[in-house]
């Protein structure tokens, strides 16, 4: 059963004194249940806009998004999100951050603690429960953000370049950790990135997006077997897919450059 459906979605931003921006143009996309779906595209192509629509943080100009057939109206704990920016609550400890969603639901404290402990262990931060975010590294903060989103038991996990601000070593560790967790729970994931390697390494399917207006240019299934590891990055299959995506994005970049020069 497909989980998230994006049906003919268009988003136009009208800013006073500027030309309206068509951030998303007639996007049609199905995010399959239990699959790891990735959207890759250049920065400014509308990736975040699309993800925020799925989160219900604002409404599209036209079209419809639905989760399990139900039209998305507003945000909900059903759809967890991890942001690129650090969004931990600095006044809460790691444990309290992870419990935040559960405490909103009014779960008994014992249950909250148990779930938090489990999630913190899953992201490898056992021992840091009582630390405050200001004492954590960027990678650790994003792990807590992941644990916090997962603690709510969402139907789908939305991730907006969650490792974008991390250095490349930490980023690779985080990708491996994320896959590790995903292999265990097969949560439906919609992951966004501008990093092609990251997209192929993580995804069951990679949707390549183009800019101005934002469109899905092609959806490429990634048949590289799991579990994937560092060697995957240099395998011939990986290289073949990467070449294809690079070509798609290169065409686009050339077009965008020309239209920018012409306009």
């Amino acid at each position: 059963m497909p989980t998230l459906t994006i049906e003919d979605v268009t988003v136009r931003f009208e800013t006073k004194g500027r030309r309206p921006v068509t951030a998303l143009d007639d996007i049609r996309l199905t995010v399959e249940d239990k699959a790891f779906s990735v959207i890759v595209g250049p920065s400014g192509c509308g990736k975040s806009t699309l993800l925020r629509l799925a989160a219900g943080l604002f409404d599209c100009t036209s079209g419809r998004l639905a989760l399990d057939g139900e039209t998305i109206r507003g945000p909900s704990a059903d759809r967890g999100m991890v942001f690129q920016s650090y969004t931990l609550f600095p006044w809460l400890t790691v444990e309290k951050n992870v419990r935040f969603g559960l405490s909103l639901k009014g779960l008994p404290a014992e249950r909250q603690k148990a779930v938090a402990a489990e999630m913190i262990a899953a992201v490898g931060l056992t021992g840091f429960e009582q630390a405050y975010p200001q004492h954590l590294s960027g990678g650790m903060m994003q792990r807590v953000a992941l644990a916090r989103a997962l603690a709510n038991g969402p139907k789908i996990l939305l991730m907006d370049e969650p490792f974008g601000a991390l250095d490349s070593q930490t980023r690779q560790l985080m990708q491996a950790l994320l896959l590790d967790i995903w292999e265990k729970n097969h949560k439906t994931v919609l992951f966004i990135t501008h990093d092609i390697d990251e997209a192929i390494f993580l995804g069951d399917v990679v949707h390549v997006m183009t800019a101005r207006p934002g469109r899905i240019k092609k959806s490429i299934p990634i048949d590289i077997p799991r579990p994937r590891a560092m060697e995957t990055l240099t395998s011939p299959e990986f290289m073949a897919v990467k070449r294809e995506i690079l070509a798609l994005m290169h065409d686009e970049a050339v077009l965008a450059d020309r239209s920018a020069a012409g306009g």
């Binding site: 925020r52 989160a55 219900g56 943080l57 507003g74 945000p75 909900s76 704990a77 759809r79 967890g80 999100m81 942001f83 920016s85 969004t87 609550f89 935040f100 969603g101 909103l104 639901k105 916090r148 989103a149 709510n152 939305l158």
Partner: peptide, 21 residues
């Protein structure tokens, strides 16, 4: 930060909780 507020919504907070918590 707007992201902090938005993030709270995706964790299930309503408007009142976003303001108070």
């Amino acid at each position: 930060s707007k992201d902090l507020i938005d993030c709270s919504y995706t964790l299930g907070a309503n408007r009142r909780q976003v303001v108070t918590r």
